[in-house]
Write a protein that binds this DNA or RNA. Structure first.
Length: 273
DNA sequence: AGTGCGACCCGAACGC
DNA sequence: TGCGTTCGGGTCGCAC
């Protein structure tokens, strides 16, 4: 669910509440969610670090502290709650940051897939995830030629390749389907077989879909709404995703659902030959 | 190296 | 109604 637009929406919300605040302490209730460094070092190093800036890189939320970057990956259902120390701990709140204004930032994830990292500033570009991430969708270097080189040897379906974060970062299962629909490309087409026009359309429509989704505050498919949950409106703009057996908005053909690389994939058989 | 697939995890949705 | 089963979402790690 959280793809680039949802991640940006969350980051903007966090920014409003967290800039300038100092982290006094952190409690970890599920060790697996801390990817780096070890739990003792994580707890020790983060003390008294102030949050100066919040951005995104790929699907990661990146907080710039004094000496470290604090990174969060929401995976499917990660979310943040603002609470005070007196509030009872929720069942799915796994990492709790105590701040210098007596408030708490709580990182919650029903499925425990979310990830947290605390990386030394001078190491950020030499270790994962930064070394594995491709271009941001709006990067000027994202051109048809760039994609041509990346796709050249790929026999995988373009649907799967759009999800490869080392080429373009930020696209997930929902927007991949939407981008291919607007580009009139069948999701099963091998990446190496795409034309120059196909690649140009992919770039153009990636920006178009993501910009619109950001404007709408992201997409909310399953309504697990909490007051802090991101409830976007982009679901009203979906052309194919989650529309199995419904008529195509353009040609009225019936939208089909198939599996591509194990992922549910929706497309219009007439518009996307 | 590129590809395919299970694992991670759990609630919701589905089938009987 | 209640039970068991399947599904999904992003990414990693392992096997081929």
């Amino acid at each position: 669910m959280p793809e680039k637009p949802e991640v940006i929406t969350v980051a903007r919300k966090l920014e409003k509440k967290l800039i300038g605040k100092k982290i006094l302490n952190v409690d970890v209730y599920h060790d697996n969610m801390i990817d780096y460094p070890s739990i003792p070092l994580f707890k020790e190093r983060i003390k008294n670090e102030t949050i100066h800036d919040i951005t995104t890189r790929g699907k990661w939320i990146v907080m710039s502290l004094d000496n470290y970057y604090l990174l969060f990956h929401l995976r499917m259902e990660g979310k943040f709650f603002f609470r005070t120390k007196n509030d009872e701990k929720g069942k799915h709140e796994h990492v709790i940051f105590s701040l210098d204004d007596d408030s708490e930032l709580r990182f919650a994830d029903v499925r425990k897939f979310g990830k947290v990292m605390l990386i030394e500033k001078d190491k950020i570009y030499s270790m994962k995830p930064y070394t594995e991430l491709g271009l941001e969708p709006w990067d000027k270097e994202l051109t048809s030629d760039y994609l041509k080189e990346k796709y050249m040897k790929k026999t995988l379906p373009i649907k799967s390749v759009l999800l490869d974060q080392s080429i373009i970062t930020g696209i997930g299962n929902i927007y991949a389907d939407e981008i291919l629909f607007l580009s009139h490309i069948n999701p099963l087409t091998r990446a190496k077989d795409l034309t120059d026009k196909n690649r140009e359309d992919i770039i153009k429509n990636t920006i178009k879909v993501l910009d619109k989704a950001i404007e709408e505050g992201g997409t909310t498919i399953r309504s697990y709404t909490s007051e802090e949950g991101v409830t976007g409106r982009f679901q009203n703009n979906l052309n194919v995703h989650q529309r199995e057996k419904e008529p195509c908005h353009f040609c009225k053909s019936i939208i089909v659902k198939i599996k591509v690389g194990g992922r549910g994939t929706y497309y219009c058989p007439k518009c996307q030959k």
